[in-house]
Structures are given as C-alpha cells and as structure tokens.
C-alpha cells in the first residue's frame, strides 16, 4: 500500500487539463470511509442495538423478548428517574459553571507566550492524561473518612458527595478545556488589542470587550463538550459514591448501570441509554442553535 502511494507522489506531475486542477483540495468522499466505518461499527450499530433492546426484555442470558413500549412506560413512571434527571441537570450546570470559569481564565492566561506560562500549562495538562478510573480511585483514597487526607464524612452527605463529584470531574477536564481556550485566545488578532490600547482600554475592558466576544465560538464548542460529557459522566460516580449516600448521587448513567449490571434488566437499561442519547443530541442541537454557532458568523466581521 505504501509503495503505491510513494510512486504516485514520486511520479512527475503531468500537466493535465485544468478540469483536474479544479478538483485538487476537494477530497473524494471515499477519504471519509475509515472514519465512517469506525463511527458505524462503534457508535451507530451499538446505538441501534440499544434502541432495539429498549423494546425488549432481556436478562443477558437467553434471547431478548419483545415487550413493546413497556420499558418506556416504566421509564416515565419511575420515581427514581425524576430524581436522577434532576440530579443530572444540576450536575451538568454545576460542572459547566465550575469548569468554564476556571478553564476560560486559565486558558486566556496560558495564551501568553511567556516561557513560565508554557511550562505551567504543560503541568496543568497532566490530569487529563490520567484515566478517569485512576483519578476516581485516587480521590476515593484521599477522601476516606478514617484514613484519608480529609477525614470528614465528605462522601457520606449529599452536598459533600455531590461537590466531590463536581470537583473531581473539574480537576480532570479543566486541563482539556483550558487547552481549547488557549488555542481560541491565541487566534485573536493582536491588532484588536493594539487598537484598544490606543483607545485607552485597560486590561479588564480588553478582556470583556475583546477576549470574551472573540471566544464566542470557543465557548460554544467547550460548552457542548462539557454538557455532553456531564450527561455521560459515570466512572467517578461509580467509584466515589456508588450513587450514594442512599440514592443522592445516582445520576442517569449510574441508574442505567444499575438497571443493566445489577438488576440485569438490560431492556430497561437500554431505554435509559436511548433516552440519554436523545437528550444529549437534543441539548447540543439547542445549544448550537441558541448561540448562533451553526450559522458560523465570523468573529472577524467588520475587520
């Protein structure tokens, strides 16, 4: 395969008709094939299967038995779903607020070209390289009520357990969003700041009138990622709290896990999973709509 490609590249460029040049830079649809296949096998097919399972009753051993809308009816009637849904919404909002504020400030700060900022940004990035499970186990040990660093009943109270989950999630994902904001901030043309400086704008005025509006699209991207990420947040909850105390931190993905891998009601678990897919897709579409991201209006308009 490689040799074929090499030959093609080594071959002298034959001057051909101008029609051929017009196609340069417009890759053939086949180029997308690997990505499409990957997406099909690892996302579309499993999603389709889960959707199919949501209309069946299956304990993981025999064959799935069709039950129509029974699982979806159960989903609507389940009082635990209401609790889970509100917990998930609160978790999403809290994580978004925490991560956006910190990541935006850090990212803008890290966009500076000073060497110390480069070194510190590299260090900040480390948590994102660790696996969520490792991070959760680490914090579980740190928060152990009898032998941890913080010997409080952190994970035994609703607010404590909830804040711990928000914090651990933030600790893990802020580096990633910092990177996005750093890239976004570096894209802002220097000339805007120079003009503002001539007009007498101070550092804060520059931040609120230039940096923030220019980061509009970056904020949308990062927000969509955070929201979808929070909706599917799972390992940390499983390891830190197991949904507890009681059912105080049993967010939707945990409820799905419990239905699937504890009560072995894979049909109901699939209904929850399908609901999550619909909710996440709907929410990101709404976000993109509301922020005008979809129209791709340039941030450089009028320049």
């Amino acid at each position: 395969m490689t040799t074929t490609v090499d030959k093609r590249q080594a071959a002298p460029t034959v001057p051909t008709a101008p029609t051929r040049n017009s196609r340069v830079g417009r890759p053939h649809a086949v180029w997308a094939l690997p990505a499409v296949l990957f997406f099909t096998f690892f996302a579309v097919v499993p999603m389709g299967l889960a959707f199919y399972l949501s209309f069946t009753e299956w304990d993981g051993l025999g064959d799935p038995r069709p039950v129509g809308f029974a699982n979806w009816q159960k989903l609507i009637d389940d009082p635990r779903l209401t609790q889970s849904l509100s917990l998930t919404v609160v978790l999403t909002v809290a994580s978004w607020a925490f991560q956006t504020v910190v990541a935006l400030l850090l990212g803008v700060w890290a966009a500076g070209r000073q060497r110390n900022r480069a070194v510190l940004s590299a260090i900040f990035f480390v948590p994102f390289l660790l696996s969520s499970t490792a991070i959760a186990i680490l914090f579980y040990a740190l928060l152990d009520p009898n032998f941890g660093i913080i010997q409080k009943d952190t994970l035994g109270s609703q607010s404590g357990a909830f804040l711990a989950i928000v914090f651990v999630g933030g600790w893990q994902f802020i580096p990633f969003h910092t990177l996005i904001y750093q890239g976004g901030a570096r894209q802002i043309p220097e000339v805007l700041y120079q003009a503002a400086a001539i007009d007498g704008a101070g550092r804060y005025r520059q931040f609120f009138s230039i940096t923030l509006p220019q980061l509009r699209h970056t904020i949308t991207t990062s927000t969509v990622l955070m929201v979808v990420g929070s909706l599917t947040y799972f390992e940390t909850v499983l390891i830190l709290t197991k949904g507890g105390p009681g059912t105080d931190t049993a967010i939707l993905p945990y409820l799905m896990y419990e239905a699937g891998f504890k009560t072995y009601d894979f049909g109901y678990a699939s209904a929850i999973a399908s609901f999550l897919v619909l909710a996440a897709t709907g929410l990101s579409l709404v976000l993109v709509r509301l922020t005008g991201f979809g129209t791709m209006r340039s941030t450089r308009e009028g320049m």
Binding site: L143, D144, P145, N146, K152, D153, T154, L155, G156, A161, G244, P245, G246
Partner: peptide, 9 residues
C-alpha cells in the same frame, strides 16, 4: 452507634 461517617465507609 455506627459513628457519623459510616455511609462513606
């Protein structure tokens, strides 16, 4: 009787 932190032990 179980202390105050047993739900996280």
């Amino acid at each position: 009787a179980f202390g105050s932190k047993f739900t996280s032990v």
